[in-house]
């Protein structure tokens, strides 16, 4: 099957008609952060003018499923507690999953399970910056969301292709479309001014060894991804496991006890997510 014109598709991704408020909002946010005279309270107040965004974001950070600690009652509070970069990621998270079709709900469940697994890996290996890593994990497959929204028929064929040839999704995407979901993730990160600590795990979770920055974070997200898939939480039913980048085992050496601990925390959540979709929480 012929691939999709990469340049044309990139343009389409950058226009993303389904996420209308996001690009403008992210630019405004980026400008405010760069100006040292603008306080967190001011930024919180400014963003808080967008009622829909505020309510979605606070609902997300306070939901038991996403596992952020404690009650967060205002945007300023979220900024202070989680930091600018985490909140940027959350703004994206609170917008993208709403647009998903029920056929892509496994992708949403997979993303939440991975964020929980990533957080647990940080806990057991004492890796700092849990919040940011959790959010990078939530967003790691953002490119797949775009594919589901923008080219739904081609993407379902790509999934079938991966299943019948027993190859990973990124490989099937490269063969069928000419690029993969991690490439799209990087285009979006560029477009939305997301920082490298979020864009690296998004862009390199299938090629950890060539991520030059934030490699440990990339490896946490990649390891969480493989663990969740191994536990049966794939984003696409029927796609089997494929060999990992060896850097993951080197950077994230998990013992069997630690793997058990991760499974203990992630499995009940995966079970509970089975019967719901993003709209139940958004």
């Amino acid at each position: 099957m012929a691939g999709i014109d990469k340049t044309a598709f990139r343009k389409k991704v950058e226009r993303l008609s389904n996420l209308p408020t996001l690009p403008g909002l992210m630019e405004r946010f980026a400008e405010m952060i760069q100006d040292p005279a603008t306080s967190m309270a001011k930024i919180g107040e400014e963003l808080g003018k967008d009622q829909i965004l505020t309510s979605k974001l606070l609902k997300l950070v306070n939901s038991a499923f996403y596992g952020f600690p404690g009650r967060i009652s205002t945007l300023t509070h979220a900024l202070v507690l989680l930091g600018y970069d985490a909140v940027k990621g959350l703004i994206v998270t609170s917008n993208v999953f709403d647009e998903l079709n029920p056929t892509a709900y496994p992708l949403w469940r997979h993303s939440i399970a991975i964020s929980r697994a990533a957080r647990t890996i940080c806990d057991v290996l004492k890796i700092p910056d849990q919040e940011e890593i959790t959010i990078a994990a939530l967003l790691h497959d953002i490119g797949k969301i775009v594919l589901h929204i923008e080219v739904p028929d081609e993407y379902l064929k790509t999934i079938d292709y991966a299943v019948s040839n027993e190859i990973p999704m990124w490989k099937a995407e490269r063969e069928m479309l000419g690029f993969d979901h991690a490439d799209i993730g990087l285009w979006l990160c560029d477009k939305w001014h997301l920082p490298a600590k979020l864009s690296k795990p998004i862009g390199y979770h299938h090629k950890c060894s060539v991520a030059r920055e934030f490699q440990e974070r990339v490896a946490v997200v990649a390891a969480a991804n493989e663990i969740v898939k191994a536990l049966g939480g794939q984003a696409e039913d029927g796609v089997i496991l494929s060999p990992t980048d060896p850097t993951i085992s080197e950077l994230i050496p998990l013992t069997k006890d630690q793997l058990n601990e991760i499974a203990d925390r992630v499995e009940p959540e995966m079970e509970a997510l089975k019967s719901i979709g993003p709209k139940d929480l958004a």
Partner: peptide, 23 residues
């Protein structure tokens, strides 16, 4: 077994498969 069929020698998946089978 089917799920792990392509990763039998992968160092990341060896302990993980053992854990999943034990569970």
């Amino acid at each position: 077994e089917k799920h792990f069929s392509k990763v039998r020698d992968d160092p990341f998946f060896i302990p993980l498969k053992e854990v999943i089978l034990e569970r």
